[in-house]
Structure formats: structure tokens, C-alpha cells
């Protein structure tokens, strides 16, 4: 279960203080497919970085399965990101000179999974997201956008995380591919009981989620 309590993130820009996330509170059950909607610059990505322990909140708590990640030291945050979180980015962020399979194997390598095991699991995950066998060995920078996003989803699933955070996962994809990715994420949430939180401004995507939140001027409301 993910619980966010009165989280604030502020930045100082010269004489001004900006608060892209200003007192956000919400909670979602395990296995929920939820969306956070908002315009560009509304603080969606900042909130995502706080939930994924990429950045630290100025104040407030982010609790994942009774563990307050806002108070964890850096070393434990690394372990948290590795074991409990999966990220799917708008720009995919694959390592370009590694193959699709090698990209999926990376989080498992960091978790100390033996080579043979991680190789087999990477192949299984790539098949699961619909990437054909012949694409597994292809370098990431030689895959299409849709394929790269599938590889990114497979990489996010590698260590069987409790929470997947997706930052505009369909933002760079055409409508048809976007639909496929949304369906894939929804299926994962319901079948694998993985909490999936999608940050988007795509209403079509949001319409297919179980819960929808709206972020405006740093404040979160549920539709």
C-alpha cells in the first residue's frame, strides 16, 4: 500500500520559492492502476520523483508498505529503488549500446541475481511485453519507440517491484502503440497485483485506470 501524507517540495529560484508539490496527500491499495493528471509544469514529474525516491521531499511522508522512504538514508534508498520500484520513462531511458535483453537484465544484475537466471527472466519478460525473440539481441537504439517502451516496461518489472511509476509512458508513442502499452500496464496491475501509478496528461489513458487524481498548482484532488 502506498500512502502519501502532506508532501511538500519547494525550490528556491533567486528571491522566489516555488512549490510544485504543495501538501499532497493520498493513498492507493496494492494492485491499483491509478493516474495522476495535470498540465505540463503542474508538478507531475516532481511528485513522481518523490514517490520513486529519486528526490527527497522538503516535508511530508511517503510510506510504502509501512516503510517511510522520506526518512531512509541514501544507501537504503538505492535498495528501495532497486527492489521495490520500477520506473517507466517517457523517453524510455534505455542504455543505447546494450541489447534489449541486456537492458532488462541490468536491475537484476544490481540485485545480485546470477547471470543465467537473469538472462532467462529477461527473455521471459520481453516475451511477456510482446517483444519477439529476434528483437531481444537488438541494440536498444535500433528499436522503434513502441519496442523501446516495451523494453522499458520489462526492465521495470525485472525485480518484481511493488510499485511501478510511469512518467507519460505513451507521450512519445502513436495512438495504437499507446493503447497497447496502456493495456499492458492495466493487465500487469490486475494480474500481478502490482501498483501502477501513471503520470499523464492523456485523458484516454486516464480513462482506463481504476483511480484518477488531478494535480494543479501543487495540489492533488481525486476525480
Amino acid at each position: 500500500m502506498l500512502t502519501v501524507k502532506d508532501v511538500v517540495k519547494s525550490f528556491n529560484t533567486g528571491d522566489n520559492t516555488i512549490k510544485p508539490v504543495n501538501g499532497v496527500s493520498f493513498s492507493v491499495e496494492q494492485g491499483t492502476f491509478a493516474a495522476i493528471l495535470g498540465k505540463s509544469g503542474s508538478g507531475k514529474s516532481t511528485l513522481l520523483s518523490l514517490l520513486g525516491a529519486l528526490d527527497k521531499a522538503t516535508s511530508g511522508d511517503v510510506v510504502v508498505d509501512d516503510v517511510n522512504i522520506s526518512r531512509l538514508p541514501d544507501r537504503k534508498l538505492t535498495a528501495y529503488r532497486r527492489d521495490d520500484i520500477g520506473f517507466v520513462f517517457q523517453a524510455y531511458n534505455l542504455i543505447p549500446n546494450l541489447s534489449a535483453q541486456e537492458n532488462v537484465m541490468l536491475p537484476m544484475e544490481f540485485a545480485g541475481v546470477p547471470h543465467a537466471t537473469r538472462s532467462a527472466r529477461a527473455a521471459e519478460l520481453l516475451n511477456q511485453v510482446g517483444l519477439t525473440e529476434e528483437m531481444h539481441a537488438r541494440k536498444a537504439n535500433r528499436l522503434s519507440g513502441g519496442m523501446q517502451q516495451r523494453v522499458a516496461i520489462a526492465r521495470a518489472l525485472a525485480n518484481s517491484p511493488k510499485l511501478i511509476l510511469a512518467d507519460e509512458p505513451t507521450g512519445n508513442l502513436d495512438e495504437e502503440t499507446g493503447e497497447l502499452i496502456i493495456e499492458l500496464l492495466r493487465r500487469l496491475a490486475h494480474e500481478k497485483k502490482t501498483t501502477i501509478l501513471v503520470v499523464t496528461h492523456d485523458r484516454a489513458l486516464a480513462a482506463q485506470t481504476d483511480r484518477r487524481f488531478r494535480l494543479a498548482r501543487g495540489r492533488l484532488t481525486e476525480d
Binding site: 529519486l54 538505492t78 529503488r81 532497486r82 520506473f87 542504455i95 536491475p107 544490481f110 526492465r155
Partner: peptide, 16 residues
């Protein structure tokens, strides 16, 4: 820098 950020985001330690 961004690639290093990716590696850290998916669980790589500073040492790795």
C-alpha cells in the same frame, strides 16, 4: 550524466 541517473534510478549503487 543522464545515463548515470538512469542506472541509479534502477538500483545501481555509487560503487557499482
Amino acid at each position: 550524466r543522464r545515463e548515470i541517473g538512469v542506472l541509479k534510478a534502477i538500483g545501481a549503487s555509487n560503487r557499482t
